[in-house]
Write a protein that binds this DNA or RNA. Structure first.
Lengths: 209, 209
DNA sequence: TTGCGGTAACTTACTCGAAGGTCATATCCC
DNA sequence: GGGATATGACCTTCGAGTAAGTTACCGCAA
């Protein structure tokens, strides 16, 4: 009886893995890969650290599983919106609306996708490339439509605007998370007003000297 | 002679401190506070770790000095631009232009300001609040002018648009850093075209359901 | 039904390395 | 000689990863 608490609890591996991944998503997405500790995640999930290692091999392996879980959720939602026939800024607005609704119960998933403290090599880098490409493809597609409407065909312009767009999405989600109590519908309305404001503002005539 | 390399090199403290802070800015701004090691910074600066502790007390103290150094540089530049009489998007464009020129020789200063792995309490938090407020004040001022031009007086809208603006600046700088060889003047031209593109795009008529 | 071996599930208690921080000492300028 | 400048070697803490053992479930033979 040296290890009083040892022995199986009768929970099948698949169930435990999901349970651990969900706890890991919240921790990784909240404090980031760098600050997260495997022991803390295990405690959150209600099991011990070695079980995490038995199932996921390493901290990086656990992050990989969590990342895939979260990224798949988000990518699927964005592709769903992209399948509509809206274009230009309206398509952007619909994407935002879908994200707000999806993230309401699990806002940390978004941070998971763009965690700057995550490993930048190995399988994690591969997975991030896969999902970033998948999401960026949608953004590039949307931005490309917008640029075509306006008559700008510089590919670097499109690349830069894609970066700005994704960053704006990030900022709006971060702002939303900082203002609890604002519903997804209200946020979508706010985004609509902001787009209107930007479009209504006068364009500067020339460049600074 | 057990410590062969010991003894003063005749460098006054103020000079060494500046030398260390400059090395620290580059490391902190490149890999972030979390991943940076004091030993590596000391090596970069060409001195030993205990000297860093003698002069700055702790890793956090070193970061604080570096942060103040970098943030002051950036805040001063932005205030210089804000003193002009341009308004709306033109003011935004001039701010971007000033930042590109300022950051060209030391791009890492920007990352220093928004390092998510920096400590979020103590003196560092205080300093960040001071500089964030100082910079955000400028952004809010600029956004406020724009919102007034357009007729939107919702303070939360202004708050959110400020967040989006600062994030867009961040994205443009990050994009620029990923595309070496692009001059500040070219970047400013690109930003001008992007603003034009956004303003020219049709505003969506209504909200998603 | 009962007993029993094999396997999957699970834990305590450890090792090990990296990095923050300190101590005692050495050298040089005035 | 005294104080400022400087360092090699050390201590300490924290967290990733591991070794080895414990318990429960399950199929199957008697």
């Amino acid at each position: 009886m040296t290890r009083a608490n040892a022995g199986t609890k009768g929970v099948p591996r698949a169930d435990r893995e999901l349970q651990i991944v969900r706890a890991a998503c919240e921790v990784f997405g909240t404090v980031g890969f760098g600050r997260a500790s495997v022991a803390a995640i295990a405690a959150d999930a209600g099991i011990s650290k070695p079980l995490v290692y038995q199932y996921f091999g390493s901290k990086e392996g656990l992050f990989l599983a969590s990342f895939n879980y979260g990224a798949e959720t988000l990518a699927a939602e964005m592709e769903r919106v992209a399948a509509d026939d809206s274009v230009g800024l309206e398509r952007g607005l619909r994407t935002l609306d879908g994200l707000f609704r999806m993230l309401e119960p699990q806002p940390w998933l978004w941070r998971l996708l763009f965690d700057p403290t995550a490993p930048d090599d190995g399988e994690v880098a591969t997975a991030r490339t896969v999902y970033t490409d998948r999401i960026t493809r949608l953004a590039i597609e949307g931005v490309g439509e917008l640029m075509q409407l306006v008559g700008d065909d510089d590919p670097l312009d499109a690349s830069a605007l894609t970066a700005v767009w994704m960053s704006a999405v990030d900022a709006l989600i971060a702002w939303w998370l900082d203002h609890p109590g604002v519903t997804p519908a209200e946020m979508t309305g706010r985004c609509h007003r902001l787009i209107t404001a930007l479009s209504g503002a006068a364009v500067p005539a020339d460049l600074p000297s």
